[in-house]
Write a protein that binds this DNA or RNA. Structure first.
Lengths: 204, 204
DNA sequence: TATCCTACCGACCGATCGGTAGACAGTCAA
DNA sequence: TTGACTGTCTACCGATCGGTCGGTAGGATA
C-alpha cells in the first residue's frame, strides 16, 4: 500500500497472477496456485488481496495503467498524428513479443466482462481506448485522416493484431517452417499498409 | 449416437453447453449447471457424455463442422474466388448476428488450446481455416488476388471481425446512441473495403 | 514495558467440483 | 418370459474451491 516502499510480496503476487490468469483464465487458476507461485501460504495471499477478484482487478489495473501511459507518451513525443499512429502500430507489435501475457488477459477480459459488468465493475481499459481513438479524431480534425469511424477503425486494427497473436501457437502448424520467423514482421508490414490505405489521405 | 434417430437429450445438452461455455468458458460452467439447463440429473448427463471434456469436444466439433460446411457451400455455389471471399465476409457478419455464441467459443478455444494441446487434442477448426485460405491461394493462382500471405491475411480478417464483435457489449458505451444501429453495417462495409484494397488486383 | 501494526502461518469451514455406484422403469428382441 | 440395453434417478465419493479463524513473530511507537 505504501507507495514509497511497496512490499515486494504484493508485487510478486500481481506478477504471478498476470502470468497464470493469462494462461488459464480467472476460473482456471486457484488462489492456492497463486500463493504457491510466490511461496507463501494461501491465507497470506488473502492478507494482501482479500478476495481473488481483488487480485484480478489489481492485475487489470496495472496492465491498463501501463498501456495508457505508453500511448500518452507517444502522443507527447510525436506531434504529428500520422507519426503517432504508426508508432502505435509499432508498439503493438513490439509488446506482443516483449509482454505476451497482455493480449491473452485483455481478450479474456473482453469475453468475461459483459457477465461481470452486472456487478458494477468498471472497464479498466476505457482510458486506453479513448487515448487511441483520440489520435484518430485529432488527425481527422487536421484533415490528415480519412473520415472513418474512429472506434470501428481501432477495434479492427486491434483485432487484426491481437487475434493473430493469440492464434499463432495454434495455427503455426499451417505456416511453412522456413517462413515462420518472418510472420511477425510480415504481419507488422500488413498492419502498416492497412493504416496507410484506410486512414491516410495522402500516399507517400 | 444413432444417426437415424438421435435422442433429443444429447442434442439439447450440446445446445445448452454451446450457450453456457460461450458465456462463461470451460472452467466457469459446471456439469450441474448444464444438467439443470435441460432438466435432467447430473449423472444422466454423464451417461450421454462420460466427461465434461467430451461434451465440450462435441460442442467444438459441431461448430467446426457447421462452419466448414458453410464455407464449402460458398466455394461450390460461386465459381469466382472474388465472389467467394465477399460471400465469406457476408457470412461472417451475418452469423455474428444469428449465432453470437460462435465467436466467443472460438476465441476461448484459441486462448485455451495451447495449454490443452499437450493432451494431443486436435484443433477442431483446422479444416475450416484450410478451406478459407484455399480460397486465397486459388484466387492467387488465377492471378486475381495480390500475393499476400494467405494465412496472415485471413487471420487479420477474422481478427478484425471477431474482436469487434466480442468487444461490442463492452465498448458500446463509446458509440453515440444514434449511430449504434449502424455499427454492424459500417463494420461490414469496412471489411469489404479491406478485402478490396489488400486482396483484389483490379479496382471496380 | 506496553501497545499497536504488518506480514505471515496452519487449521478449519461450508460449498461445490467432476465423477462413480447401484437401483429402477421402459423397450425390444430371442 | 426372459434377458439385454437404454435412459434416468438418488445417494455418495474424495478432492478442491474461495474464504475465515485464531494466533505468532517482529518492528515501530509511546
Amino acid at each position: 500500500m505504501n507507495p514509497l516502499k511497496p512490499p515486494a510480496t504484493a508485487d510478486k503476487l500481481i506478477a504471478i497472477a498476470e502470468s497464470l490468469f493469462a494462461e488459464k483464465g480467472f476460473y482456471g487458476v486457484s488462489i492456492r496456485d497463486l500463493a504457491e507461485g510466490v511461496s507463501i501460504a494461501k491465507s497470506s495471499l488473502l492478507h494482501h488481496f482479500p478476495t481473488k477478484e481483488k487480485l484480478y482487478g489489481a492485475v487489470l489495473k496495472k496492465l491498463a495503467d501501463e498501456m495508457t501511459l505508453e500511448v500518452k507518451e507517444i502522443r507527447e513525443r510525436f506531434p504529428d498524428e500520422t507519426e503517432q499512429i504508426f508508432q502505435f502500430v509499432h508498439l503493438l507489435c513490439h509488446n506482443s513479443e516483449e509482454k505476451p501475457n497482455r493480449e491473452n488477459i485483455i481478450l479474456r477480459e473482453l469475453l468475461d466482462n459483459p457477465k461481470r459488468a452486472e456487478k458494477a465493475r468498471k472497464w479498466f481499459f476505457a482510458d486506453y481506448f479513448r487515448e487511441i481513438t483520440d489520435i484518430i479524431r485529432s488527425g481527422q480534425n487536421k484533415g490528415a485522416f480519412k473520415p472513418v469511424n474512429p472506434e470501428i477503425f481501432i477495434l479492427q486494427l486491434l483485432g487484426a493484431h491481437r487475434y493473430l497473436i493469440i492464434s499463432l501457437p495454434t495455427v503455426k502448424q499451417f505456416f511453412d517452417a522456413a517462413i515462420y520467423n518472418r510472420i511477425l514482421t510480415d504481419h507488422h508490414v500488413e498492419l502498416e499498409i492497412f493504416v496507410r490505405e484506410r486512414l491516410l489521405k495522402t500516399e507517400s
